[in-house]
């Protein structure tokens, strides 16, 4: 479904990604972990063509997206939803309008259908009754959940989550994790999840990739990661700085 080959990117003179290779099979969930500032968000943005790499290839559903025009990328982006780290809500629209935006853009006109789908999403993200609020009046965690609803409402076949549970309380975090799992089980959604939350990583991952110094340092199943003797990985898992 998703394949990345030799992806390189320099930003402001600094090598952020230097040769990333990754494959995510259809219906699989890959969790990407790594130190803050390691380039995880940058990597996700490349996968939907929001950033253009200096070198490398990105294959989505058998199509190389490098060099596609913005209009051609639209077809890819309808298949691949992305949740931004900050939510990236449209601040001139209410919660309801934000969530309904992809539906309206897809040509859905019937207000009743739209309202039903929006309410269904609000229930999923546990924000019933907040339809009319503006994004400025939402907490960080609420924004993130609205952003999540917006990116999954059209049921893309692949979803990229940038820290879906950061800043959420443990209960809501758990329900988001369940949601990610459920989407995968029920609709065979392919997911890439960037997270710092190791509990949720182990809960949802089929594979885990550890991004370090612009490359994939480790790739394997959660079990393999857990028993890995590598000190770098153990430090990360246990949250140890300098020994």
């Amino acid at each position: 479904m998703i394949a990345v080959r030799g992806l390189k990117k320099k930003l402001a003179g600094q090598e952020i990604l230097c040769g990333i290779d990754l494959t995510v099979a259809k219906g699989e969930t890959l969790v990407i972990i790594g130190r803050s500032g390691g380039g995880k968000s940058v990597l996700l943005k490349h996968l939907v063509g929001l950033m253009h790499p200096d070198a490398g290839e990105i294959w989505i559903d058998g199509e190389n997206i490098i060099g596609l025009s913005e209009r051609k990328l639209a077809a890819i982006r309808r298949k691949v939803g992305i949740l931004f780290q900050g939510g990236a809500l449209f601040d001139s629209m209410t919660v309801e309008e934000n969530i309904a935006f992809p539906l309206r853009e897809a040509g859905e006109r019937n207000p009743k259908t739209i309202r039903e789908k929006v309410n269904e999403m609000l229930e999923v993200i546990e924000l019933e009754g907040e339809q009319k609020k503006m994004p400025v009046n939402l907490s960080g965690g609420m924004k993130k959940r609205v952003g999540l609803a917006r990116s999954i409402i059209r049921r893309p076949s692949c979803i990229l989550y940038d820290e879906p549970t950061a800043g959420l309380d443990p209960v809501v975090s758990d329900s988001i994790n369940r949601l990610i799992r459920r989407l995968q089980e029920r609709f065979r959604v392919t997911s890439i999840v960037v997270t710092h939350d190791m509990k949720s990583a182990f809960h949802i991952a089929d594979h885990i990739a550890y991004l370090h110094q612009g490359g994939i340092y480790f790739y394997g199943t959660p079990q393999e990661l857990e028993i890995s003797p590598d000190p770098l990985l153990q430090d990360f898992l246990l949250g140890r700085s300098e020994r």
Partner: peptide
């Protein structure tokens, strides 16, 4: 100002990611 704010707060990226030019 409006478009610039959308640009720096990733809202333009969000538009693009939702397949809207």
């Amino acid at each position: 100002a409006e478009i610039g704010t959308m640009k720096v707060t990733e809202q333009i990226d969000a538009l693009r990611a939702l397949a809207v030019h």
